[in-house]
Design a protein around this nucleic acid. Structure first.
Lengths: 195, 195, 195, 195
DNA sequence: CATGAATGAGCTTTCATTCAT
DNA sequence: TATGAATGAAAGCTCATTCAT
């Protein structure tokens, strides 16, 4: 094959990261081989190992990028402005970010069961996400807009509320109607399910 | 090793199924080898293949048993008796069933990414579960106790509500307080999160 | 399964031998499993091992029977009667015997490569056959009806002359026209191929 | 073990092909493992699978090479020169080619019974060989030097005439005297066996 | 830096044989 | 004598990783 042009390490790494993201998203961690990644990137096997310690390392790196992408869309609540609107806006952006092509599958579906280190990476991601939700809930409680109760548990429930519809849609190859989902979530958060 | 005593095929199969369930729960599908399963069962490799076509077949069989176990705890609502109590009771039994040692990990964590056939098995499980939830919601709507809206989406949200706290707890090796969880879910379903 | 009725050992052995012959003929030594043989015979696995030391032993026994069948059709030449007719008659019986359903495949196709002991069994068969042909040729030379020359080599050539058309026909699933083959062989032996 | 030096794929493949040929010739298809081949070649298991899809694929490749080797020694008859001499020369070269160490065993002894695909490969080989012989016979008939009659059958007989002495010699670990064999075949073709 | 041939531990699966019932 | 569940050595194959060029 034609030799890929030499490239600043960071660029090459970024290229590989993107390729790895696509590959993992397409087939999941276990079914994705290093061969898939380097084919996607158009470089040789050895090049991959110049930039990552191995397949798992690459996966963790992909995970990190995706986490950052997802988290970045959540903007802190400005208490001097109407709060509910900000919450709904955050929620909608979050759902949309999660639904972006690769994220859902990589983060939610294929990530568990790699090995202890892989699980740890996942825990880190979920830990960060849940931490943010908890903080938001606590703030809400202090503001009197969130019911009292175990915020940790509430946070996990909320995570599931957002995640599961996306995961299920992925599982069936459907696309999610973000607007409808957000509306549904809004209603759930506001009044529950049962009259 | 001492030769395992002969046994009626159905018994041995059941024993292997249990062993496989424990093994998959302990290390997940991908990290579990047939070697682990037969070690857990205390039989030789060949014996495993007398009862299952292979590792994936065993996994599917485990999945099937667990599905049945989980589903069986949900009892139909008796409309001539107070409904809410029945709903909460069902919910509590469901949460407890899911929390049983092996179920959560096998069903929720390690199951995706095996191969197309494996994914199909999962889809079947989730499909059946969601179908039940949807039916319950529709009944609820007809009885006027469930808000209007897309039941399919509602069902997925509810699945997430139940599943995620259990998954997260597993991820951290925590045990879930079923009572607390059910109470929280109850409140969520009744009035939402936000005042 | 219903227990096969107890049976005098020789009968059961004969039954198994026949079943083994059919099985080996159908799929060849390597692709035939003990499972095939016992299924064909309608007995349990263990029964097979009560009558044969193992798969190879059964194969050797089948070989022996077939050898005897084939060899028995060749009748000694009566020098007081017209010789050529007897030769042609022997030849025709031989070809027909070889063409009998199972013989060709078992003897000629699937027999080599089992292991040293198996090869030895084959050598025995071929040795016996060639010995007979050599003797016939020597007699012929003494009677002045066979050309001089290395009888051992001549014998092998003749074996090939008979065997190959049958083997090839088997390979293509064709049936051999014994009459035509014998006629062709007759002409070859009498005058060769080239004018 | 010392790492085998990198090598252009075609070279390595050729080396493996040769090693496989030796291995198959030494022990036959069924008793030869991939382990034997890679040991013979002095490379690791994985290297083998970089070049062949599996054991059977390697066998088919060996078969192909050997076919080509054998076929290539037969040169077309030049009708403007004395024909019989050319026929004998071809015959002698053919016999010698077949007797080359590996060819006879691989082609003639161990090849049947692999599986349907393997048998098909063999049929191809024999088909090609027989086709050539048939063509030669037809030409001979047109030139009036070959007796009339079924060329297909004649071709098979001739194949047996050449093949069997070589096979038998192999079976006994003898070496064939090519000169003597060709002389014998010559006489057989010219005048038959019986006066 | 990039390459890709080479590696080999580890995995799944098969099947002739054994032996307690 | 007949049974068939149990066995486990042995085989084929994969793929993340290494390293000489």
């Amino acid at each position: 094959m034609a030799r890929a042009p030499a490239m600043p390490p960071d660029d090459r790494r970024a290229q590989l990261l993107a390729a790895a993201g696509r590959a993992f998203a397409a087939k999941g961690y276990h079914r994705t081989g290093v061969a898939d990644i380097v084919a996607e990137a158009g470089v040789a096997r050895g090049t991959f190992y110049r930039h990552f310690e191995g397949k798992r390392d690459a996966f963790k790196a992909v995970l990190k990028v995706m986490m950052a992408d997802v988290v970045s869309v959540v903007v802190p609540i400005d208490v001097s402005a109407p709060i509910p609107d900000q919450v709904w806006a955050n929620l909608e952006r979050l759902v949309r970010a999660i639904m972006v092509e690769d994220v859902a599958r990589v983060l939610f579906s294929e990530a568990v069961g790699i090995d202890e280190e892989g699980d740890e990476a996942l825990r880190e991601f979920y830990g960060a996400a849940l931490q943010r939700i908890e903080t938001a809930l606590q703030t809400g409680q202090q503001l009197g807009v969130v019911y009292e109760g175990d915020v940790k548990l509430k946070a996990r429930v909320l995570l599931g509320v957002i995640k599961e519809p996306v995961v299920q849609a992925k599982l069936y190859g459907e696309t999610v109607d973000a607007g409808a989902l957000v509306r549904e979530l809004t209603l759930l958060l506001r009044r529950g399910v049962l009259k």
